[in-house]
């Protein structure tokens, strides 16, 4: 009987999971469809001529006939809706076109660069999460103290700090003055990519990751602090205090469990800011990630790459939000998938 009960539970869980996945996938598809239409419409309005952008420095050597041929080959004279549908059809097959700047398929550019960014963003995401949570707990546990005021002040100032300025600051202190860290890039110059050791890669990762971590800390610290104070003011905390629990054992027993969930959710929901921050940080450190590719794509009018990055970053943010929903399900038994999807 018990076995049957379990398998019943499993079946219903699998069903729920399946419907969750299907609903999420449908939402993502709808989002991408709309986003692609809006982005495509916006890009076609741009005064920057794609042929001129493509030709670039060879401007003088390309005559009007050649330009017309390029425009014809790309189908630039067709009506926008027709072009959009053709592009969408190719995107659906996984073909995002060829990047003009990097002269290789957009999907490859995004794939390679996202791998580099993933290390950076992953490290920053973990560091800021752990550090921010710890700071938030310490500040919330000692609310009103000098330490608490200091942490709050620090977090509020960080919220107004330009990402790229913080990156420059770290670069000046640690790379120029102290010479502890390299000044740029993801690996030492003059070494074949396959000869670069993991230690060298990590060495180059420290500063960009530190920039994003420091900025990511502010939000989660303030949030955790607030939640912990709310827990400590609750009736069950008062009851536990009356039973003789000390403040820190109370936080360990009752506090952490209740504030971990919103913190994890918040951290997953921060994918959007993480991606935005990586654009600026990668620019300062010349770190060859996806964010650094977004800049020339916009600057030099590499439309296929720009559209590819727009769609990809939306998928990235969507993934973060979906993971936040799943984290709820795993960490809080009161919340069920059916409610979320």
């Amino acid at each position: 009987m018990v076995g049957a009960g379990f398998s019943m539970l499993d079946v219903s869980f699998t069903m729920l999971m399946l419907s969750f996945v299907i609903k999420k996938a449908a939402r993502l598809a709808a989002l991408l469809l709309m986003l692609s239409a809006v982005a495509f419409a916006l890009v076609s309005l741009s005064p920057i001529d794609p042929v001129t952008a493509y030709v670039g420095a060879d401007m003088l050597r390309v005559g009007p006939e050649q330009r017309a041929r390029i425009a014809e080959r790309w189908g630039l004279d067709d009506p926008p809706v027709e072009r959009y549908l053709r592009w969408l059809g190719q995107v659906a097959q996984g073909d995002l076109g060829v990047s003009m700047i990097y002269r290789q398929p957009v999907i490859e550019v995004i794939g390679q660069r996202f791998l580099a960014s993933l290390g950076l963003m992953g490290a920053a995401w973990l560091c800021s999460g752990v550090l921010g949570f710890a700071l938030g707990v310490l500040a919330g546990g000692s609310a009103g103290s000098v330490f608490d005021r200091l942490v709050r002040w620090f977090a509020y100032v960080l919220a107004s700090t330009p990402t790229f300025w913080l990156a420059l600051l770290l670069l000046i202190v640690f790379s120029v003055e102290l010479r502890w860290t390299p000044i740029c890039c993801a690996m030492p110059a003059g070494i074949a990519p396959e000869d670069v050791t993991l230690a060298q890669r990590l060495h180059h990762l420290i500063l960009p990751a530190a920039t994003l971590s420091i900025l990511g800390v502010a939000n989660i610290t303030l949030h955790t602090r607030q939640k912990l104070i709310a827990v400590l003011e609750s009736d069950y905390a008062l009851f536990a205090r009356a039973q003789g629990e000390t403040r820190w054992s109370l936080i360990r027993q009752h506090g952490l469990r209740n504030i971990a969930l919103p913190a994890v959710t918040l951290q997953f929901a921060s994918f959007s800011e993480l991606f935005g921050g990586s654009v600026l940080a990668e620019q300062v450190f010349a770190y060859p990630g996806l964010g650094q590719a977004a800049v020339p794509a916009g600057l030099r009018g590499d439309v296929p790459l720009l559209l590819g990055i727009v769609l990809f970053s939306a998928v990235f943010v969507f993934t973060g939000n979906t993971l936040a929903d799943l984290a709820y399900q795993l960490l809080d038994p009161r919340i069920r998938l059916a409610q979320l999807a």
């Binding site: 916006l42 741009s46 005064p47 654009v279 600026l280 977004a294 916009g298 600057l299 720009l306 970053s313």
Partner: peptide
């Protein structure tokens, strides 16, 4: 509401780059 959600689905920086490009910088 849907349009607001659409805007929020994109990282701020990417949206900024896209729109700045559309208006020619």
């Amino acid at each position: 509401t849907w349009l607001i959600d659409l805007f929020m689905s994109l990282p701020h920086m990417v949206a900024l780059i896209l729109i700045a490009f559309v208006f020619g910088g």
